[in-house]
Write a protein that binds this DNA or RNA. Structure first.
Length: 480
RNA sequence: CGGGGCGUAGCGCAGUCUGGUUAGCGCGCUUGCUUCGGGAGCAAGAGGUCGGGAGUUCAAAUCUCCCCGCCCCGACCA
């Protein structure tokens, strides 16, 4: 009974979901706890996932005209204080540097929790005329938010993300930008991460500190809790006014610039784990998996000379078309290797033993269903390609079905509370639009309004709390 | 910031209540041989400031005090 560190027992989801989550991340070697409280080390397996996300998203940003830049980690305290709501929202969770070079600083420097302020201080220098607009800048960086309670990937003191900051001549254009970026996030998360999301508008109390409107994509995890997977904000003139960023328009008028910002973070890795993983470990969608398939040869001393060359030949066929590895390590038996690759979520495995060689075939094994599929060796490339697509699609459909089975349309508050208490999930209910009702629901059920879906049907109803008229349903859930 | 738990070999733990030989077990690691279609077997090895400090005692992993760290659960948040 071998139990290498990577293949120890994972706590089953039914026993302790939160423990399971941590176990999967540790055993799949995505991350490890660091010597610094609340921080984590992203290990090569986790970082490779992030690199894939970066590559794909970055391509999508570039296609829509965005360019990358880099702004400083440190932000003068006075900048942070310029936008009233922004200060209030972020001040409590900021790390502040008071000393440098052995001396007390004249002005403390905030470690960025987000970069609106320092970026807009620069935009002031760069924007004079409507001809300077729009500015479409993105940066990939780390940010620090001093959270009271941290969880690997979901909420750590320091995390990696991308933040887009754009400047526009008109409100309409900025609004369109914010919506466009949210749509890019939706497409990326659904098409690549195979995680279905609900796109919509955040309520006043849930929006970003300093925004006019915040949009989000919301996903359901396997424990039926919601996870905000990405956000996009229309910031209006708030930061332009705070930093005095004006331009002269075509009509000769001097106007304030309209802003947006938008971001996704390494939290997406947590979403991936909690959407697709099972009791055997991680399950990665093929389109984001750093390693799409692994070949495990199965030999005895007597037939090693037959199995291994055959495996190498299969490997040669596949490499270049897929990310593939031949696991010819001597010190582990096949069963051990199967378990290890499963924990790490590799979508497809190819087993090649003496029987396969005799039949000129390979045995394909899906990670998600663990189904074994024999395939003639000369059709391996096509079959692998096809299976990877099927797995990608099936993961999305399974997650979608999970969400459908746990989404309820409720019109009675007692029933609402019972669902939140007893089984969890998303509840679509009418809401009058008042912060009081929203706060009461949160107080009594711990559920918040995740967002007001873009695609909701107009429907006359009554607020589930106060009975006042409502024009449509919003999505309630307990959230991470 | 409140509540709970933990800190003994790389990892997981026992030993602590009731102080007493060279501080144990499982896994992993090293070497050798045999194995290999779902987490291999045998043999021989290496590996320890018992989280830190102070105290009590003939004697402390064990009792007392202080400190540090981490994890989990609640109020705030990508």
């Amino acid at each position: 009974m071998g139990t290498a560190p990577s293949v120890e027992r994972i706590t089953p989801r039914s026993e302790d979901y939160s423990r399971w989550y941590t176990d999967v991340i540790l055993h799949a070697r995505l991350a490890d706890y660091s010597p610094v409280k609340g921080c984590m080390v992203i290990r090569p397996n986790g970082y490779a996932l992030w690199e894939n996300m970066q590559r794909i998203l970055d391509g999508m940003f570039k296609e829509t005209g965005h360019v990358n830049a880099y702004f400083p980690l440190f932000i003068p305290e006075s900048f942070m204080k310029k936008e009233a709501e922004h200060v209030e929202g972020f001040a409590p969770e900021c790390a502040v540097v008071t000393h440098g070079g052995g001396e007390k600083l004249e002005e403390p420097l905030y470690v960025r929790p987000t970069s609106e302020t320092i970026i807009w201080s620069m935009y002031k220098k760069w924007i004079m005329s409507y001809r300077d607009l729009p500015i479409l800048i993105n940066q990939w960086c780390n940010v620090v938010r001093w959270e009271k309670r941290t969880r690997l990937f979901l909420r750590t003191t320091e995390f990696l993300w991308q933040e887009g900051h754009t400047a526009h001549a008109t409100a309409e254009e900025a609004e369109a930008e914010a919506r466009q970026m949210l749509e890019i996030y939706r497409k990326f998360v659904e098409d690549y991460l195979a995680i279905p999301v609900i796109t919509g508008l955040k309520t006043e109390s849930e929006k970003f500190a300093g925004a006019i409107r915040t949009y989000s994509i919301e996903a359901m995890m396997q424990d039926k809790k919601a996870l905000q997977a990405g956000t996009s904000h229309y910031l209006g003139e708030n930061f332009a006014r705070a930093f005095d960023v004006k331009f002269q328009d075509k009509d000769g008028q001097v106007k304030y610039v309209h802003a947006t910002s938008w971001g996704v973070s390494t939290r997406l890795i947590g979403a991936l784990v909690m959407t697709h993983g099972d009791d055997n470990g991680l399950i990665l969608p093929p389109r984001i998996a750093p390693l799409q398939l692994v070949i495990v040869p199965i030999w005895k001393e007597t037939n090693r000379d037959v199995v291994l060359p055959f495996s190498v030949q299969v490997y040669q066929q596949l490499k270049g078309r897929f990310t593939v590895r031949l696991d010819d390590r001597e010190q582990y038996k096949p069963g051990y290797k199967f378990a290890e690759w499963e924990i790490q979520g590799v979508p497809l495995r190819i087993e090649i033993g003496p029987r396969d060689v005799n039949n000129q075939q390979v045995t394909l094994v899906r990670r998600d269903t663990r189904e074994k599929i024999p395939c003639p060796v000369d059709q391996a490339v096509e079959k692998v390609e096809q299976l990877l697509e099927v797995v990608q699609k099936d993961l999305f459909l399974r997650a979608l079905e999970m969400r459908r089975n746990n989404t309820f349309r409720i019109d009675d508050y007692t029933e609402f509370k019972e669902i939140m208490e007893k089984r969890g999930g998303f509840v679509e209910a009418h809401w009058c639009g008042s912060e009081e009702c929203e706060a009461r629901v949160k107080e009594e059920t711990k559920a918040t309004i995740r967002n007001i879906p873009f695609d909701r049907q107009p429907e006359k109803g009554r607020c589930i709390v106060c009975g006042q008229p409502s024009e449509g349903r919003v999505v309630f859930a307990r959230a991470y």
